[in-house]
Simulated assay, not measured.
Amino acid sequence: MYTRELKNIFINLSEIEPEVLRRYMLNEVGEKAKDKLYNYLKDLSESYPQFENWFYSVVIPEVERKKGEREIIIVFSQSAHKVVLTGIAILKRRAQEKKICTFRVHEDFRNLGIGTELFEKCFEFLGTRKPIITISQNRKDMFESHIRAYNFVETQMLEGYYTQNTIEYVYNGFLVDI
Rank of each mutant, 00 (worst) to 15 (best):
D108P: 05
P49A: 02
Q156A: 06
N111G: 10
R94W: 04
Y169L: 05
L118T: 08
G127D: 11
F109A: 02
I73W: 00
K140G: 01
K34C: 01
S145I: 13
Y56T: 06
T102N: 12
V59Y: 04
T116D: 12
L37T: 05
F125D: 05
Y169C: 04
K82E: 14
I133S: 03
F51R: 04
V75Q: 01
L44V: 03
L118N: 06
G160Q: 11
S57N: 14
L112I: 06
I133L: 08
A95T: 14
F119R: 03
L41H: 06
R110M: 12
D108L: 15
V176N: 10
D141Q: 11
T3Q: 09
E71W: 07
L85A: 00
R4D: 11
T128I: 12
I72H: 02
F10A: 00
N53H: 07
T116G: 02
Y48P: 01
E71A: 09
E15T: 08
F125R: 03
I135C: 02
D43S: 11
F174C: 04
T128C: 08
D35I: 12
M157A: 10
V83S: 08
I132A: 01
F51T: 12
L44W: 09
P49V: 04
Y56F: 15
E97N: 15
G115F: 03
V83N: 05
Q96T: 14
Y171F: 15
T102L: 07
G30R: 06
R129P: 05
K34P: 00
T102K: 05
A149V: 01
I60A: 01
F123M: 06
P131V: 07
E154M: 14
N8F: 00
M1F: 07
E46A: 02
Y2D: 03
V84A: 02
I88Y: 02
V176F: 05
E168Y: 07
K121E: 13
R94C: 02
V170P: 07
Y171P: 11
K92L: 12
A80V: 11
E69G: 09
I9R: 00
N39L: 05
E144A: 12
F109C: 09
K67V: 03
E69A: 01
H146K: 08
I16L: 03
E31K: 12
G160E: 09
S14T: 05
E168R: 09
G115D: 05
Y161V: 08
Y2K: 13
Q78C: 00
G87I: 01
N8H: 04
T134K: 04
D43F: 10
P18N: 13
G127Q: 14
G113R: 08
I72S: 03
L37G: 01
